[in-house]
Design a protein around this nucleic acid. Structure first.
Length: 407
DNA sequence: TGTCCACAGGAAATACGGGGGT
DNA sequence: ACCCCCGTATTTCCTGTGGACA
């Protein structure tokens, strides 16, 4: 009797302290396009992204006059709503053009995960229903021809939204050459391209013969400021959480922290989500203190998740460094302990050259810091400094060992 | 001031693996 | 079943270089 009472009370307690009522609205991945648009529309309605949308409208207005807008380059950091704003805009554009009986279609080429030219073209072909999904084995030329063939009979506006152009890993040149020079000549349609990128100079490394041909207009997306973030967070909170469980100032704090860092809305929402989860676990409302803890947790999770999915060799390299106790150490020392580890686990031992690249990669991801030190007469070398807190270091070591099935 | 270490890091070569065409 | 082709990972080869030392 007593136990059942206890259980009942625990359940009641838990329910009373539930904070997140619909987690889907705290994670865009779980929303479908339509829901994303709805959320977005509400944000637009409170004047966020007003300027950007206006610029887009002005740029594409000529379509309704049978003009031909030039290509567009949309710039701005990640997580500030470039993709979803543009998609929303394009969708509206499509509706409008339908009303005016203007043939208009668009394709969203999503390169948020980097892929080579071949994949990108293949994706485009798939959207057009011009080819199936190949892994390998078809030449680029073949794909291009098929795309052209498919579009041969279409004469309206055709818009390709190349999302994160600079993510085309190899041969961005030939990809662009196709879109900019070859395709428009091969088919009768009116082609308009939109490129988005978080790198302001993404055109820098492109063959000048293409750039000179490519006339671009630009729209710049600003990072969200604290005020925008506050509006966005409040909206999400109302949709997904019990508002009375969230203390005064929490939203403001998250908005402030995130606007200071990157102005990234996705991260802000993620932080709100994590705070909610943490608070639920503690059976307490979301307080400022909990936000701090969530901030910490989000940061650490990022590193752990990254190393978990990283290639074996990279894991081994990091392990070799983390298990060395010194604060700073030259790469050669690391290489030794790395190669020892490899032989122990019967992995292939990479050359120093390759190892050196792994080190640079680890530096890029922020696991370690590398700096060049010159000893003059005695040569130059790079030195590695650990960049993670002791606690995180231990956790990373643990995770990597687990990945290797070692204790 | 010139030398020269000990490595960095670019470029090209090579190995590899897996899918499609035939 | 065999060959060809492409993308990726790694190796091999090589040139470049900051600055202590003589």
């Amino acid at each position: 009797m007593e136990t059942s009472e206890k259980i009942e009370k625990q359940i009641q307690d838990k329910l009373k302290h539930t904070i997140i009522t619909d987690r889907r609205f705290l994670d865009d991945e779980q929303l479908d396009r339509k829901e994303q648009f709805e959320v977005l529309k509400e944000i637009f309605d409170i004047d966020v992204r007003d300027r950007e949308i206006r610029e887009l409208s002005l740029h594409f207005a000529p379509i309704f006059n049978h003009g031909h807008p030039i290509h567009l380059s949309v710039l701005g950091k990640t997580g500030i709503g470039k993709t979803v704003s543009i998609l929303y805009f394009l969708n509206t554009l499509q509706d409008l053009s339908r009303k005016d009986k203007i043939p208009f279609r668009y394709v969203h080429l999503d390169l948020s995960i980097p892929k080579p030219c071949f994949r990108a073209l293949n994706d485009l072909a798939c959207y057009l229903d011009a080819a199936k999904r190949y892994k390998r084995g078809v030449s680029l030329d073949e794909l291009m021809s098929r795309i052209e063939e498919k579009l041969q009979s279409y004469e309206g506006y055709f818009l390709v939204f190349v999302d994160e152009v600079d993510h085309i890993r190899r041969d961005l040149d030939s990809f662009l050459k196709f879109l900019v020079k070859r395709l428009p000549q091969a088919v009768p349609l009116k082609l308009v391209l939109i490129f988005s990128s978080n790198n302001l100079n993404w055109q820098e490394n492109i063959d000048p013969r293409i750039t000179s041909f490519l006339k671009l207009s630009e729209v710049l997306f600003d990072p969200y400021n604290a005020c925008d973030l506050k509006k966005i967070l409040r909206l999400r909170m109302e949709k997904a959480m019990k508002t009375d469980m969230i203390q005064e100032g929490v939203i403001e704090k998250i908005a402030a922290v995130c606007s200071r860092n990157h102005g990234d809305a996705r991260k802000a929402v993620e932080l709100l989500y994590k705070s909610g989860q943490l608070a639920e676990k503690r059976l307490s409302p979301v307080s400022l203190d909990i936000v701090d803890q969530a901030l910490d947790a989000v940061e650490k999770d990022k590193y752990v998740a990254m190393i978990k999915t990283a290639p074996r060799q990279l894991q081994a390299a990091l392990l070799a460094i983390l298990t060395k106790a010194q604060a700073t150490l030259p790469i050669t020392d690391c290489y030794e302990s790395y190669s020892r580890f490899c032989t122990k686990t019967r992995m292939r031992v990479l050359t120093q050259r390759a190892f050196s690249d792994l080190i640079s990669e680890l530096d890029m991801y922020g696991f370690i810091r590398v700096r060049m030190v010159s000893n003059g007469r005695y040569g130059r070398r790079r030195e590695i400094t650990q960049n993670t807190s002791d606690e995180l270091t231990q956790r990373l070591v643990q995770v990597i060992l687990m990945e290797f099935d070692l204790e």
